[in-house]
Write a protein that binds this DNA or RNA. Structure first.
Length: 555
RNA sequence: GGUCUGUUGGUGAAGCGGUUAACACAUCACCCUCUCAAGGUGACAUUCACGGGUUCAAACCCCGUACAGACUACCA
């Protein structure tokens, strides 16, 4: 009997030279301080990183940092149909955009660091096979020759009879196949998958502990799940999870809620091998409301905002993205941030208990608000530097102007900034141009002037000409405004708005109407930052030019 | 069909047996003001999906129902 099993196992895995025990020795337990969390981000190299994946990566990274643990990157390329070229660089890049750099694992397309590799699953074939072989030897795994047609048939029957779907019990045709027969069929060259001979009983209950959800009761797993696939001989996720996370000595598995259903399978696998079980945290999914008004999980394919790269393109600062991720990761973070203002949250401790179990709606306006506050805290020179980087990639025209007028640009960004109550208008690097374009003559060629309260052309001409000739004084803000008021009195506009409100009929308008004309002529917009600051930067000459330009326009 | 999870305002949520049901975003109003942004003040859930039960007392505990989501692949 044992000889037969050995013959079968050797036939199934002819290239295995090492045993599970050998690997145990090769990858010993990590020597880390008490409580250190070892966790990982294990994406498929299918292109960009999804917001939901990023959230779990971020939480894992934070948890590892907080405990002086290890955060490593492992690539799950067992589904080779979906893998793409240079997928790893893309992932690394997306992570880097939010300042996540793995401590271990893949650090480049073909580069890795750490003692627990290889960190690409397709390079770990022998290891998986050694583990699977041991299972066969122990009579806990077997070759299954069922074709996909046969499997479909089983499924149909189960659906028809309203029975549980899956390969288990009497539906598991190959489970009790005579070993001799199995050997014969393999010798004949028949294709097979390796299935677990599940020792579980569906009628028995087990209680599994989840770090965010608490105890969950499940029936035991009795599905003879596939361990090794037939065509490429690569492991399924379940089996790779067992082998890799055990051998890489992962302490915490942080993954999406969509995995809770397979929790019993994983627990069973660890039990069978007698390995120490990692702790699990199943994170709530990131959702969105779609056009039909229903909540659903953010989709890589349908939702552009699901990709991390999207925020990079939009010019949302990585600090804001991080702050936002942290606020949805831990519900007590916002409060903490209020008490510890700034952008740095290394002192905030990530807490599994404060992770929401229900799916979170991805709230773009909240992100933008966080971003806006972030910008308000930055120095003009910092904004300049970062904007320079961003425009280099996404807005060449603006970039060139920033280079050409460096000091001038910083002064622009400094309007109403670095004060007690800094201006809050920039929401992203991409939005800045629309707030400042009028400060650059090159971008002010054909402005679309917004409407002013005062519409009479002659009145407008009178205001602008009188102002320029007699009242334009930029020596300081008080003088500047006093002069504006003085002119208002002279031309019949109320210099005091309260007076105007009392007796509107006594005046042609009020100061705000007058400054409105000046503002639009200079900037084309009715809403801008402090007019005096703008005028000071523009200088008298350009003010004159713009007045003329405005008067000659159709407005 | 089966298994699991979730459900507190427009949104993110706090609360976990006795609270005026925090806080933040959004929205609205007023104040401030050269226009905005910001800031200030205030409004915004008589009620925690629904129906029962336990209790002196329930958003919090129990049962049922509804709805939503995930999983149910040789995808992860």
């Amino acid at each position: 009997m044992d000889d037969e099993l050995k013959e079968l196992a050797d036939l199934m895995f002819p290239n295995v030279t090492k045993t599970v025990l050998d690997y145990e020795k090769m990858y010993p337990e990590r020597n880390l301080k008490e409580g250190a969390i070892v966790t990982r981000f294990a994406p498929s190299p299918t292109g960009f990183v999804h917001m939901g994946s990023l959230l779990s990566a971020f939480e894992g990274y934070k948890a590892a940092r907080d405990t002086d643990g290890i955060f490593y990157l492992r690539i799950e390329d067992t589904d080779q149909k979906r893998s793409i070229e240079n997928g790893i660089s893309g992932i690394l890049n997306d992570l880097k955009n939010v300042d996540i750099v793995p401590d271990e694992g893949m650090i480049g397309e073909n580069k890795s660091i750490g003692e627990y590799g290889p960190y690409i699953q397709s390079e770990r074939m022998e290891i998986y096979h050694a583990f699977a072989k041991e299972l066969v030897l122990r009579g806990l795994a077997y070759p299954c020759f069922c074709s996909s047609e046969e499997l479909d048939e089983i499924r149909e029957i189960q659906e028809l009879n309203k029975e549980r779907i899956g390969y288990y019990g009497s539906f598991a045709k190959c489970r009790n196949m005579d070993i001799k027969e199995a050997i014969e069929r393999i010798k004949k060259g028949e294709e097979f998958v390796v299935r677990l001979k599940s020792p579980g009983d569906f009628n028995k209950k087990i209680v599994l502990h989840d770090l965010v959800r608490g105890d969950i009761e499940f029936p035991e797993n009795d599905l003879d799940i596939v361990l090794i696939k037939s065509t490429d001989k690569l492991p399924t996720y379940h089996f790779a999870h067992l082998v890799d996370d055990h051998l890489m000595r992962t302490t915490h598995i942080m993954r999406g809620e969509d995995w809770v259903a397979s929790f019993p399978i994983h627990d069973q696998l660890f039990s069978i091998f007698g390995f120490e079980k990692p702790k699990y945290a199943h994170l709530g999914l990131v959702m969105k409301i779609d056009e039909t008004g229903t909540r659903r999980k953010l989709s890589k394919r349908k939702d552009p905002e699901a990709s991390v790269e999207y925020y990079h393109k939009e010019g949302i600062p990585k600090e804001a993205v991080k702050l936002y991720l942290m606020t949805i990761a831990n519900s007590n973070f916002e409060e903490w941030l209020d008490n510890n203002p700034g952008d740095d949250f290394t002192d905030f401790k990530f807490d599994f208990k404060k992770v929401s179990a229900s799916g979170t709606l991805f709230d773009v306006s909240k992100l933008l608000n966080i971003s806006k506050n972030y910008f308000s805290r930055q120095k003009a020179s910092t904004i300049y530097d970062n904007l320079l980087n961003w425009t280099l990639e996404f807005d060449k025209e603006f970039h060139d102007l920033l280079v050409k007028y460096k000091d001038y640009s910083i002064k622009i960004f400094n309007i109403e900034r670095e004060t007690e109550k800094p201006r809050k208008d920039y929401t992203s690097y991409s939005s800045i141009r629309s707030f400042v374009f009028y400060m650059y003559d090159e971008l002010f060629q054909n402005p679309k002037y917004e409407d002013t309260k005062i519409t009479n052309k002659e009145d407008i001409a009178t205001i602008l000409n009188t102002y320029y000739d007699e009242y334009l004084d930029l020596s300081n803000k008080d003088v500047w405004f006093a002069k504006v008021k003085e002119m208002c009195d002279k031309l019949g506009y109320a210099s005091n708005i309260k007076d105007y409100k009392k007796n509107p009929d006594n005046y042609k308008g009020n100061v705000s109407d007058v400054t409105g004309v000046i503002r639009v002529s200079l900037t084309s917009k009715t809403n801008t930052p402090d007019l005096y600051e703008i005028m000071k930067l523009l200088g008298k000459e350009r003010i004159k030019e713009r007045f003329t330009k405005y008067l000659n326009s159709n407005k």
